[in-house]
């Protein structure tokens, strides 16, 4: 069984996340193989780009069931950026239609576009305020800066799953967690020392899970 599999859904800069995991002594492997992903001890699910494209790609590559199995097996899963958004029920980000696009549905809620009038993408360093004492944020000061780049944000139905919030004209959800499932809107692999610390925390969560 692989210790940590980084999901290759063809839409992310996997090199940086791979190297960042290595920096914190994790032994990641990149894979697009549903069997490998489903059997992993833990999974990182990164993603950038369009929700619409990515949702279609994971369906076409039979990754949906693999990811859902990781979640139902209660193995640690960390969604990053679009990877986190794809865990949600649906998104407003659609290229060709006005209809919402379905995500994995592992977290009840919707992915919404930032309201008009705000510069988008929300790109740059912003402060992350943990909402609870979740192990993912252990040892990080409240208000630590992380690197964001996105035009859509998640709105969970249940506030209990909100792990952290970030202010961008209004407070939006910048991290979610529900049992072994976690997601962050920012890029830990691009957030300097704070980001590496968070990935190290994810490593501890993996270790504690076994």
């Amino acid at each position: 069984m692989k210790e940590l599999v980084i999901v290759d859904s063809g839409s992310a800069n996997l090199y940086s996340i791979f190297k960042a995991c290595e920096m914190v002594s994790l032994k990641p492997e990149i894979s697009s193989n549903p069997e490998v992903i489903a059997a992993a001890k833990a999974v990182i699910f990164p993603g950038v780009g369009f929700f619409d494209h990515a949702a279609r790609t994971i369906r076409e590559n039979r990754l949906t069931d693999a990811l859902l199995k990781v979640i139902t097996d209660k193995k640690p899963l960390l969604g990053i950026c679009l990877g986190m958004q794809l865990l949600f029920t649906e998104s407003e980000e659609s290229i060709n239609t006005a209809d919402a696009v379905k995500g994995l549905g592992a977290v009840a809620g919707r992915v919404k576009r930032f309201p008009a009038g705000l510069p988008v993408p929300h790109v740059g360093w912003n402060r992350v305020m943990p909402a609870s004492g979740h192990p993912l944020f252990e040892g990080l000061e409240s208000g630590a800066y992380f690197y964001f780049t996105h035009s859509y944000y998640v709105q969970p139905e249940k506030t209990q799953v909100i792990l952290a919030r970030t202010e961008y004209a209004f407070p939006f959800t910048s991290a979610v967690g529900d049992g072994s499932l976690m997601g962050v809107q920012f890029h830990p692999e691009k957030s300097g020392p704070a980001g590496l610390h968070l990935l190290g925390n994810f490593g501890k969560i993996i270790a504690d899970n076994y």
Partner: peptide
């Protein structure tokens, strides 16, 4: 491999295939 902050590359980029190569190499 050693710098974990965003990286931008410019200069002479004239195709999506070159963009892809740079992004896959670790450019953001």
């Amino acid at each position: 491999e050693v710098v974990f902050i965003p990286l931008t590359v410019g200069g002479g980029i004239d195709s999506t295939s070159f963009m892809q190569e740079l992004l896959e190499s670790g450019a953001d």
